[in-house]
Amino acid sequence: MTAQQADSSAAHDAPPALQEHFEATIARDQRIEPRDWMPEGYRKTLIRQVAQHAHSEIIGMQPEGEWITRAPSLRRKAILFAKVQDEAGHGLYLYSAAETLGADRADLTERLIEGRQKYSSIFNYPTLSFADVGVIGWFVDGAAICNQVPLCRSSYGPYARAMVRICKEESFHQRQGYELLMTMMRGTDAQREMVQDAVNRWWWPSLMMFGPPDDASPNSRQSMAWKIKRHSNDELRQRFVDMTVPQAEKLGVTLPDPDLTWNEERGHHDFGTPDWDELMRVIKGDGPCNSQRIQRRRTAHEEGAWVREAAVAHAAKQAARAEKGTAA
């Protein structure tokens, strides 16, 4: 069932006054809160989006996390360690936001490791050198900010509030990534080559982070009508390109797109078409690192099961002992 179908069936059953109140709240640009009535389709769409976002934060720890133990200076090690920790924190907020909609973190984690829920396709690409850490900060966090800043005004309150804090941290990460690249570009020839190579590999996958083109994005229209989403995929992609081109010039790297030019008439950059077939392959599970990413998450989850079970058992014993103490 699509989100739209879900909505129309739920709307059909809902008391008209509740439906009208919901529509009016959205129309006035006010927030929907967990206690408010909402159409089932709205709830399901949000759970799907917030869970995917949470999964992306958690899977997104892996490509960069692999470099914490190898970071080439203690300062870079601290920066990267703290960044990956922030991503775990973002995942936690977002799973909590999903739980306000009636979802359960353990269930969402099961869905992730069974491949029933997605995460951002970008994290299925490998990190081949330390320059990738900087380029991920610059491109991937930059693209995430373009995607997420409008979500600070999302109609669902807990999601919007989580996004405010997350966006602030992402913007800090983006500046740190860019600063690493600036430092590397001032360094040795080998470092400059590493940066250009990383830019070449991450540019197109970063453009794909905004999702398929608008005319091929079935869920976008309803999400925009509900003000869960505020801008179309293509609008956000354009914004990212326009923002990144002058940064690339300042850095002294070439973006790997021969069609990239300033279009005076549009007031925007024209750019080439990403390989949408590649995006579809990666989304469907055939990216370079899909199975490795899910396997790592599955292993951590399964190997941690006895620890979580022990914590639950201990809490139950504590409660029983406290009750016994009170009764005695």
Binding site: M61, Q62, G91, R297, A300, E303
Partner: peptide
């Protein structure tokens, strides 16, 4: 640091 992405729960990460 080696525990990163391998911890039993997100709070432990």
């Amino acid at each position: 640091a080696e525990w990163t992405t391998r911890a039993p729960e997100l709070e432990e990460e």
